[in-house]
Design a protein around this nucleic acid. Structure first.
Lengths: 248, 248
DNA sequence: GAGACCCTTTGATGTGCGTCAAAGTCGTGT
DNA sequence: ACACGACTTTGACGCACATCAAAGGGTCTC
């Protein structure tokens, strides 16, 4: 066992050879921050990324108001981000999976503006932001890709606004399922069959509806042969009709 | 009349001395992109910003699918951004005023993902994005500020999600008015009295409600002595109670 | 492996906001 | 100054979704 023997707060890790992040070895590099970098640039990126951090289900990666110092690339696992108001309402603002970046919200004010919670045991690669900016100013393709990623987040949010502002409950759920499907697909998983990591309540919070309404919509979709639901296991049986559902 | 004699599509400009943008002379530099730059850096930024562009009310600054090449700083005026779906629904995703940046959505895919429309005669300073990235990689404070601006947009969008997902009609409108108030205030205008540049329909679209509901809420607020409404002229009479309204 | 708890489903009922409709007002262009 | 069109207001009514309630199932813990 070579380097990086630092003690970590881990209970379950049995024989992880090393915790050092290694973008150059990572299967996600076509999905994550290194997109568009050449081999030597990726190796330089390796030195920038901190030791991987493991989280158990339910653990917070960061909380609102936490000091911002790094963004996080999800190595494995599944997260949600949410906001909490003084009067106790909370709004899930997104679900993030393998290869997604977390923490971009923190840049604007040097502190996080939402909570990030692992919905299953997960592992993230922290990227100290000061280092990233330094590095980005040297490697143009990294800078450019990073800007695209931030912009993509803005575009994604526009889509959520459309969803929350203009769609009916069934359309929202259909859009949600199709979005997950497409994201699983681009990560090499089945686009037609997947496991939901979040509860009905969390789906509802994200989609601006109550958990009972989510449940009823699932049931109705199932009755109509659009999907099959078994707890958190979802199969999309008729993707074209699900898509059609969204434009009326 | 010195330089920049290029023909422009202007009908009304009578004696504009020059159309060249000049951040160094601009009263907005504490609000806009030059925040945090020193004098010599601002002067370099001047060379980067293109000739100012004037738009009449109703004109599009850019449209969905337009090729992305520049972001725009609003010199004067007022804009909305909106999305349009195939089936004709449209969602206003934001209102932008003096000093705000437009076009960040375009970075992610080299084309714009929404429409930007002037709600009154306006003037913008185009900032060619390739130049901006180049410049940002040289001037760290510019790079850093630009990242903050993008992140601020993400945080703003989170707030809109909360609004659309969790608030009732009255809360949404109160939040909307207070947001405008605060933004006018930070631009040196009265926080208690202002002119709405958008229609009830556009407000409704942004807030995820129908124009009739917007109108009714305005009337109710007025009846309760919270605001005074005269068409598009709004006076906030009881800001504390408007704020209180949002947490129940 | 048993119990507790959380999550989900389904039904009955209520309501906030949407829809439809019509009248009124303002701003704009001729 | 007039007339048209766009925007706004207000009322009556309906519906999609929320709320309240209760039972059933899954899963995690000890």
């Amino acid at each position: 066992m070579p380097s990086s023997l630092k003690a970590h707060t881990e209970c379950t890790a049995t024989h992880t050879p090393t915790l050092k992040a290694a973008c150059s070895q990572c299967g996600l590099k076509e999905l994550c921050l290194p997109v568009g970098l050449n081999q030597s640039e990726i190796e330089r990126l390796d030195n920038l990324v901190g030791d991987r951090r493991k989280l158990r289900r339910g653990e917070h990666l960061y909380r609102t108001e936490d000091h911002f110092e790094a963004i996080y690339a999800i190595k494995t696992g599944f997260f949600k981000t949410d906001l909490l108001t003084e009067d106790g309402r909370d709004q899930v603002t997104g679900f993030q999976m393998t290869g997604d970046l977390l923490g971009l919200d923190g840049i604007s004010a040097d502190k996080h503006s939402c909570n990030a919670v692992a919905l299953e045991d997960s592992e993230v690669c922290p990227i100290p932001f000061a280092n990233l900016e330094h590095f980005a100013s040297e490697i143009r393709s990294l800078q450019s890709h990073f800007h695209r990623l931030m912009s993509r987040e803005i575009v994604r949010d526009q889509g959520v606004m459309m969803l929350l502002g203009k769609m009916r409950a069934e359309e929202r759920l259909a859009a949600f399922l199709l979005n997950l499907s497409q994201r699983f697909n681009s990560r090499g998983f089945s686009p037609a069959e997947f496991h939901l990591r979040m509860t009905r309540d969390e789906i509802g919070s994200y989609l601006g509806m109550k958990l009972e309404t989510v449940s009823r919509c699932f049931s109705r979709f199932q009755d109509e042969g659009l999907i099959s639901v078994q707890q958190k296991h979802i199969r999309l049986l008729d993707i074209p009709r699900l898509k059609a559902l969204m434009s009326r």
